[in-house]
């Protein structure tokens, strides 16, 4: 565990908490892509199946459970409890265009052709693009609430910090995982445009509004 990994995980945790609190406090999931949230639930489920097969540390186990519970909790709030506030007219990204290529890629490029390993690989590929329906929704409506922007910033920062963690581990521990690294780079790059808008607008107290 190094500082980049810890900050990355905390940023990830913060993102998940911001999202749950936003929905809970405002009693609304307006502006949030249910499709992205479905993809994230699939990501955590596929990746954290190893909860039952391998023990790393209490920290890992607790965090995995938190992400799983938070993710299904978010789905519950969006699709059941506050279903009426779900903005499905603007949430139209076709997720099969993301899921199917990730399945095929996981079957072709993986470390080991075993069920758990392929599911892990699939989750890494899917996570890298899972935010696209949300970004598509923001671009479609042309704006995002500040709280949604904070959520996206924390979520984007998390994998960015993991990139520094992987650079550190390469030198300090001689450890690297090309699948995670390349997917992590893709994931972080997808947020770049949003990061720019966040820093130039939201941090100056303005609403995130895309140029017309």
């Amino acid at each position: 565990m190094n500082i980049f990994r810890l900050l990355g995980d905390l940023s990830h945790l913060l993102a998940v908490i911001i999202l749950l609190l936003k929905i809970w406090k405002t009693r609304s999931c307006a502006g949030i892509s249910g499709r992205s949230q479905i993809l994230f639930a699939a990501v955590y489920t596929a990746r954290y199946l190893d909860l039952v097969t391998s023990y790393i540390s209490a920290y890992n186990t607790v965090m995995k459970i938190v992400f799983l519970v938070a993710s299904y909790g978010t789905l519950y709030l969006m699709f059941l409890k506050f279903k009426a506030t779900y903005d499905h007219n603007h949430d139209t990204f076709r997720i099969e265009f993301l899921v199917l290529p990730c399945v095929i890629l996981a079957l072709l490029i993986n470390h080991d052709f075993s069920a758990l390993e392929i599911l892990w690989t699939f989750s890494i590929y899917l996570e890298s693009v899972a935010i696209l329906p949300q970004l598509f929704m923001v671009s479609k409506t042309g704006e995002a609430e500040s709280i949604t922007s904070h959520y996206l910033f924390a979520l984007g920062t998390y994998r960015g910090l993991y990139l520094f963690n992987w650079i550190y581990r390469y030198y300090a521990e001689d450890h690297y995982d090309l699948i995670a690294i390349i997917a992590g780079i893709v994931q972080t790059v997808l947020y770049c445009d949003f990061f720019y808008l966040y820093i130039t607008k939201v941090l100056k107290g303005k609403k995130l509004q895309l140029p017309a």
């Binding site: 990830h12 990746r47 790393i56 995995k64 470390h111 080991d112 390993e117 690297y176 090309l178």
Partner: peptide, 10 residues
């Protein structure tokens, strides 16, 4: 050490 020898990250 690369890849598959136990994924110890989240």
């Amino acid at each position: 050490r690369t890849g598959c020898e136990g994924h110890d990250e989240l």
